[in-house]
Structures are given as C-alpha cells and as structure tokens.
C-alpha cells in the first residue's frame, strides 16, 4: 500500500514584528492507510499549526518555509497554489475538524441546510438526494436525524462536535485531521466522539486519521502510531504501544509519566515536575530544543541538534541518548 501523505522536513513559520515564530520546524511524518496517528505535545508546541499545514491551509501571518507534502494521487501540495489545493483536496481528500469545532457551524443555518450546501457543491446533488444521503450518514454514525432540522445553538456541545465530524467526513475523505476534538468535552461525551472516530475508520469512511491532542490517555484508546512534538519538532514517533511502553526520548518519558501515573496528585501536576517553560519559538535554543529542561542533558545536546535514529520498525527518535544505548 502506498503512503497516503508524506510530510518531509516541513517548516512553517509565523512572521511577527519580532521575527519568525518557528511553530513547525522540520517535521517529517508518514501517514499510511489504516493509521490513526496521534500527535501529542504541550500547548504551544506547534501541533495545531501542524494540523493546518498538513492540508496546506497556510495563510499570512503563517508562511510555508520549506519541505514537501506529498499527497497520494495528487502530488506535492507545497508547490501548488492555495486555490488549487482547495479545489482538489479540501473536503474531498483531506478534511479537518478544527479546534474550534463548537463554533464551526453557521449560526444562521440549519445543520441540514448546510449539508445540502456542501453536497450540492461537491457532488451536484439536489436537495432531496442530499437530504437522503445526510440522513443515512447520520443514522450510520448514531446521530439523531432530527438534528438536521436544528440550528447549531439548539445543540449541546458534544452534539455539535459530533455533527462537525460527520459533516467533515460526508465526502469520504481519505484523511481526517482532528485538532483537539475531545478537549472541550466531558468524559462520557469524549467516549462517544472516540467511538465515532473508530467507526469512521472501521467502516472505511476515512482511511487514516491524524488525531491531535495534549491528552496522551485519549490517544491510548484510539491511536495506532504516536508522534511526540516539542517546540515545533517531532521528538519521537513510533507505534503506539512501543512509544508508550518503551519510550526513549526523555521528553516522551516525562509526558507519559505525567499522564499515566495512577496517583492523582502526580497527574494533576501535569508536566510541572519538568523544570522551566516550553521555549520561546522566536529564538529556540541551540542544539536539542529540549536540552534546557532535560534531566539527562549532555554537553553535546547544547551544541548540535540530535539526528533522527531508527529503532526497529517505524520507531524513530531524535536524541543522543539512543546513540549511547540508553533508555529513560
């Protein structure tokens, strides 16, 4: 099987009066059919920016600086014009559930009417056919059909989130990117949303999912692969179980420890046992970006960025410790 989307050394910076904010700085990521790639990291590590960059939704002040984005059957999105990417890719091949999904529905339009707009434009369906298709899809995903006749403000937060996911996948995109789809929801609604994602994948409505979150515990329930982002770079990426069970990068370790520890007081402290704050992306530290906070930092870490090292199948890490054969 061909890789669905290959991101190769992708760089996207925000231009600000003080200089470039290196939000995505050399990210390499393969997304294969059947994958649910979880992207995890603290807020401000660039994961939200990455979700937009992966589908080339890049608008000033964000700038695509370098790298390749090869989409299967389409080519390198990075060299295409925005309008062309939009016409060929958005909605049909790659769909995004934005972070602000709670406000993503048009306040003055009923859910069903909006769906008719989408289907009418893309599939040239008339109102009757569009509504039939919408009903079928809603039933399949376990959403009440009455929702179609409602305005967004009449729906609960969880329902809105699920409706947005349903609309994003109406055209059976190959890749679904979801940016923090569960963070604003309570636990039981989170479960429903996760179930919906799994359903989308097992029924082959979508072929792969990129799931962006700060919550590793959620990823454990859904992801097949995990990428750990820190300060605009991917620190470690690999199969979910491998990364969770045998993390290599010290940052991955602290992230996992903070979430997966059973004791609630540790959990609540989050990453606070890590000294310091995430770096300023205007002037990221030299060498490994994590070294100022790394408990195992060495001399070389301050000078040169570590290379990406392969560890068995599909497991890559960017840390000098690996070269010395250590694990954290």
């Amino acid at each position: 099987m061909n890789t669905l989307l290959v991101a190769k050394d992708v760089k996207a910076y925000y231009s600000s009066p003080k200089g470039f904010v290196r939000a995505v700085d050399g990210v390499t990521l393969d997304i294969n059919p059947g994958d649910v790639v979880g992207v995890a990291g603290e807020s401000g590590c660039g994961k939200s920016t990455l979700s937009n960059v992966l589908m080339m939704n890049v608008q000033p002040p964000l700038k695509f600086v370098g790298g390749k984005l090869i989409l299967e059957g389409v080519g390198d999105l990075a060299v295409m014009e925005r309008q062309k990417v939009k016409a060929q890719v958005w909605g049909k091949v790659i769909a995004l559930v934005p972070q602000s999904a709670l406000n993503a529905l048009i306040p003055t339009r009923k859910v069903g009417a909006f769906i008719k707009d989408v289907l009418g434009y893309h599939l040239k369906l008339d109102a009757r056919k569009a509504s039939a298709l919408a009903q079928r899809r809603f039933q399949e995903l376990g959403l009440p059909v009455e929702t179609l006749a409602k305005y967004p403000h009449q729906l609960s937060g969880g329902m809105r989130q699920r409706v947005v996911i349903a609309i994003a996948t109406l055209l059976n995109p190959k890749l679904l990117i979801a940016d923090e789809p569960t963070s604003a929801l309570d636990v039981s609604t989170q479960k429903q949303v996760l179930k919906m994602f799994l359903h989308l994948k097992t029924e082959h409505i979508v072929r792969a999912i990129v799931f962006i979150t700060h919550d590793i515990a959620i990823l454990r329930q859904i992801a097949t692969r995990i990428a750990i982002m820190y300060a605009g770079k991917v620190m470690e990426v690999g199969p979910m179980e491998a990364v969770i069970q045998r993390p290599v990068h010290p940052y991955t370790c602290s992230l996992i420890r903070s979430v997966l520890t059973p004791e609630p007081e540790v959990k609540e402290r989050g990453l606070s046992h890590l000294a310091g704050d995430p770096p300023d992306l205007l002037q990221p530290p030299a060498g490994c970006r994590f070294h100022p906070r790394c408990p195992q930092s060495m001399a070389i870490c301050t000078q040169e960025a570590p290379p990406v090292v392969g560890l068995g199948k599909d497991h890559f890490v960017s840390c000098y410790l690996v070269l010395e054969g250590c694990q954290c």
Partner: peptide
C-alpha cells in the same frame, strides 16, 4: 474571520458561498 467560515473554507466551499454566509450573519 470566524470559526464557521474557516470550517466552510476547509470543506472546499467556494469564496462566493463563504461571503454569502458572512453577509447573512
């Protein structure tokens, strides 16, 4: 600049349609 326009944009709906949504609101 609102979130629903962003979503409609990402769904590939044409500029004209986005403008119509914004106009209505």
């Amino acid at each position: 600049g609102s979130d629903y326009i962003l979503f409609a944009d990402l769904l590939g709906l044409p500029q004209r349609r986005l403008l119509a949504y914004a106009f209505r609101s």
